[in-house]
Every structure is written in C-alpha cells, then in structure tokens.
C-alpha cells in the first residue's frame, strides 16, 4: 500500500504551498492529476489521505482527482489515440513502437485554501 507514502507526500507538498501570510489556513481541496497508467488507486489514496491528514492543515480536505487517459503516439506512422484496454499496439499500422504522451501523471495541480473563520 504505497498510497500511504503518496498521501504523505501530497500533504508535505500541499502544506509547504500554503502562503506564509495565510496563517491558520485550512486546505479545503487538493486538485490532483493521476494518469490511468500510474500505479495509484484513487480509492486507496483517499482512504490513506484521510488517515495521514489528521492533525495537519489538510485535515478534512477533499482530494479532487482528475484521472487522465493514456494517450499514445505511434513512432512509425504518427497515429495518436487513447488506450482504453491494455493493448499497446498501433490502431492503424499494428506497430508496437509507442510513445506514451500522457497517462503516467501523479501531480498536484493546486490547493484551495480557506482562511479560518474568525
């Protein structure tokens, strides 16, 4: 369950991204991009995040996960397509020399921070 470690990294990066002037701020939402070819299961990640984020400025924050599709380009005929099934051969020439354009993302895009109610 490496999702635990990944949740911890998300918290570290997000907490360090809260501007200094927003003291006492609470992170309401973390916007993530996770590729379908990454080795992360969103449900496990949410579960782990809920545990690891306790007693941090991210406690209770929502993980908004955009799952990005696997986009491939054939190095032989330049066809571009989206891979939905685990078949990594070119849909037009049948070749197997692919460039994976996207789908391996595991990125924090932004955080949404709220000032604590006075």
């Amino acid at each position: 369950m490496h999702e635990m470690g990944i949740a911890q990294q998300i918290i570290d990066i997000a907490a360090a991204s809260i501007p200094a002037e927003m003291t006492g701020a609470r992170v309401e939402r973390v916007n993530l991009k996770i590729g379908r070819l990454s080795a992360v299961v969103p449900e496990s990640l949410r579960f782990c995040f809920g545990i690891v984020s306790q007693d941090t400025p991210l406690a209770g924050a929502e993980l908004a996960i955009e799952e990005t599709p696997i986009l491939a380009r054939c190095k032989d005929c330049d066809t571009r397509w989206t891979i939905d099934e685990p078949v990594f051969t070119c849909t037009s020439c049948g070749g197997g020399r692919l460039e994976i354009l996207s789908g391996r993302e595991l990125d924090i895009v932004s955080i949404e921070v709220a000032e604590r109610e006075p």
């Binding site: 990066i13 924090i108 895009v109």
Partner: peptide, 15 residues
C-alpha cells in the same frame, strides 16, 4: 474566502 493556489508538482518529486 477560498483561494486557489497553483502548485504543479510531481507528487513523487522527492523520490
């Protein structure tokens, strides 16, 4: 008031 702050980092950048 909620403010969106851009981060744009690989989660596993440290590794």
């Amino acid at each position: 008031m909620t403010q969106e702050i851009k981060v744009v980092r690989r989660v596993l950048a440290v590794n």
